[in-house]
């Protein structure tokens, strides 16, 4: 064996491969294998759980003509547009505020991060009560403003924005931490130099801070978009995809198709489509950073 060839180098590093083997095995068994099986299942019709009939690309062809599938993609897109811009701007805003040294800085960091560590199910249950048509806090405040109460989760026009608000509330703390970390990397000398030159806070933010945070902004944007595509637990608790499928996002649609309607082949095909969409977003991020590093 050529000691400098591929096999030779692998043999030299055999201890390393042994060390990573358990992780690779677990990843393979619980991540990669299910992905492969999902692809396989997407080409099948399963009249019962243990009997698959190969149907080729029929499930994908059916998706092309399935109005409710396209509707769920549209609803997912609407949810992304309702949540991501506010999450990115909101988390950046809170990060900038929390970057200012104050006596209660640590307390507020914990407070804003608290919703992130709460389970989605618990958050959904609590907010379902907040949105209650008769005794909910939201309608109480509307009443104080002299407005009519709303059926927040029972009105097709309001249900998705209501869920979006909860999604923003729950996740803004997570991206705030990422921005905070990024703000720590901005050299203090740049701010000092700007202040010496007489620059005020707002121009400093837009001319110095934001350009330097650009890679982090893009990362947060893509992470938030991927997370928004995967919204499920709060829908399960608060709206069941309704009313009238107005909150039936693509992941909810996959769940209902696979497990409620017992059409796992069709559900798997939808899962593959979602995989391709998210893969596309990840590739955008990859090529963006590649260009940035070459630039």
């Amino acid at each position: 064996m050529d000691k400098n060839g591929l096999l030779g180098r692998m043999f030299k590093a055999r201890a390393s491969y042994l060390f990573i083997a358990p992780s690779v095995l677990i990843l393979g068994l619980f991540i990669f294998l299910p992905v492969v099986l999902t692809f396989v299942m997407s080409t099948q019709f399963l009249p019962s759980i243990d009997r698959g009939i190969f149907v080729g690309l029929d499930n994908y062809a059916a998706l092309l003509h399935d109005a409710s599938f396209w509707s769920s993609l549209l609803i997912t897109g609407q949810y992304v547009l309702m949540t991501v811009p506010f999450m990115v701007c909101g988390s950046l805003f809170f990060a900038v505020l929390l970057n200012i040294r104050t006596p209660f800085q640590a307390f507020f960091k914990g407070l804003y991060y608290l919703p992130v560590i709460c389970s989605g199910i618990m958050v959904g249950v609590v907010w379902k009560w907040i949105y209650h048509g008769e005794i909910g806090v939201m309608n109480y405040f509307l009443g104080l403003l002299g407005m009519e109460p709303r059926i927040w989760l029972g009105d097709p026009a309001l249900a998705l924005p209501s869920l979006a608000l909860v999604g923003i509330w729950k996740n803004v703390g997570y991206y705030m931490i990422i921005f905070l970390a990024g703000l720590q990397t901005v050299p203090e000398e740049l701010y000092e130099a700007a202040r010496i030159d007489g620059a005020r806070k707002v121009p400093i933010f837009f001319r110095i801070t934001l350009p330097l945070l650009k890679p982090i902004v893009v990362t947060v944007l893509i992470l938030a978009t991927i997370a928004a595509f995967q919204a499920f637990d709060m829908i399960y608790v608060m709206t069941f995809g309704g009313p009238m499928e107005s909150t039936s996002t693509i992941l909810w649609k996959i769940y209902v198709t696979s497990f409620v309607k017992s059409q796992p082949g069709e559900g798997a095909a939808m899962g593959v489509v979602l995989f391709v969409i998210i893969l596309g977003l990840s590739l955008v991020q990859f090529f963006y950073f590649k260009e940035e590093s070459l630039g």
Binding site: Y131, G133, I151, W152, G154, D155, A159, G242, P243
Partner: peptide, 9 residues
């Protein structure tokens, strides 16, 4: 039926 029951199971 109370319209507020629209979002309930």
């Amino acid at each position: 039926v109370n319209p507020a029951d629209m979002d309930k199971t």
